[in-house]
């Protein structure tokens, strides 16, 4: 029996004035999936995640997240997701402790969840003393850690992570990747966008390649390889460039730069 999907999007279209960011996107993510959303800059990855998290309304099309429509049932959706934005959206005048207190209170976390959140905070960093410093004064990476912890602390069924490894150090990146895997082992799901192909290759159970607002290739790594006609040993980067028709462009550009360099 096919499990009921945690995310199902149909014919999503999003227009910003004259610009069409999404052009009939379809998406289905089941419990247990780590779904990697890959695509060139401006392909529509962030817009997709923002629509799924209830922060934007599609121009047309529909979406269901954990059984709720993010466009009309935003609170219900937000209760069931953890969202990390491309650039951390935080109250910069609050300290991490105050911000976590605020997030935990709005989510009405119980004692166990607070203990889990404290463990997360400790796991991501335990050496200094900036837990009581305004977020605005923290480095980009530390801000990202705050955003990640705030998204994970209530152990939601669905994680929507937009470039979550931005600015994170190696240790924190490793912890986050492992947490994503633990999350899907517990029948949660993760959708995350990234430009780091190695990460997508090592973590994702399924990968969707998005370009010009459309999902034009989707599947496991093996399925994508066969779809692109690349060899078994090809990296995701090769597959991606092949599928987005950018392989030839990259080769020609590099050739020209080499000749200009000499």
């Amino acid at each position: 029996m096919t499990p009921s999907p945690l995310v199902e999007a149909r014919d999503l279209v999003k227009e910003y004035g004259q610009v069409r960011a999404l052009d009939g996107l379809n998406l289905r993510v089941n419990p247990g999936d780590v779904y990697g959303l890959l695509g060139p800059n401006g392909a529509g990855k962030t817009t997709t995640l923002r629509i799924l998290s209830g922060l934007e309304v599609p121009t047309s099309g529909s979406a269901r997240v954990a059984g709720f429509d993010p466009a009309t049932q935003g609170v219900e959706v937000k209760r069931r997701i953890g969202y990390v934005a491309e650039s951390a959206i935080l109250y910069e005048s609050l300290t991490p402790r105050e911000y976590f207190e605020f997030v935990a209170s709005t989510r009405q976390l119980n004692h166990d969840a607070v203990a889990y959140a404290s463990s997360l905070a400790q796991a991501f960093d335990a050496e200094g003393a900036s837990y009581d410093v305004p977020i605005g004064a923290l480095s980009l990476g530390t801000k990202q850690k705050v955003a990640v912890i705030a998204a994970l602390m209530h152990r939601p069924p669905l994680l929507l992570l937009d470039e979550p490894l931005n600015g994170l150090d190696a240790k924190s990146s490793k912890i986050l990747k492992e947490l994503m895997l633990i999350h899907v082992e517990r029948k949660g799901a993760v959708i995350f966008s990234t430009h780091i192909m190695e990460v997508a290759e090592s973590v994702c159970t399924r990968i969707g390649i998005i370009n010009d607002g459309r999902l034009f290739a989707e599947g496991t790594m093996g399925e994508l390889r066969s779809l692109s006609g690349t060899s078994g040993g090809s990296s995701l980067e090769d597959v991606f460039l092949k599928l987005t028709n950018e392989e030839r462009f990259v080769e020609e550009t590099l050739e020209r730069l080499r000749s200009e360099g000499t």
């Binding site: 605020f102 709005t106 463990s119």
Partner: peptide, 30 residues
């Protein structure tokens, strides 16, 4: 540009603790 803190957060595990309040109360405090 503003100097950024490169330091970590806190030392003991207990120092990461925070309180959970009512939604409205938390929002007013924020």
């Amino acid at each position: 540009p503003a100097r950024r803190s490169q330091t970590g957060w806190a030392r003991g595990a207990d120092q990461y603790f925070f309180r959970v309040r009512g939604r409205l109360s938390a929002y007013v405090r924020k």
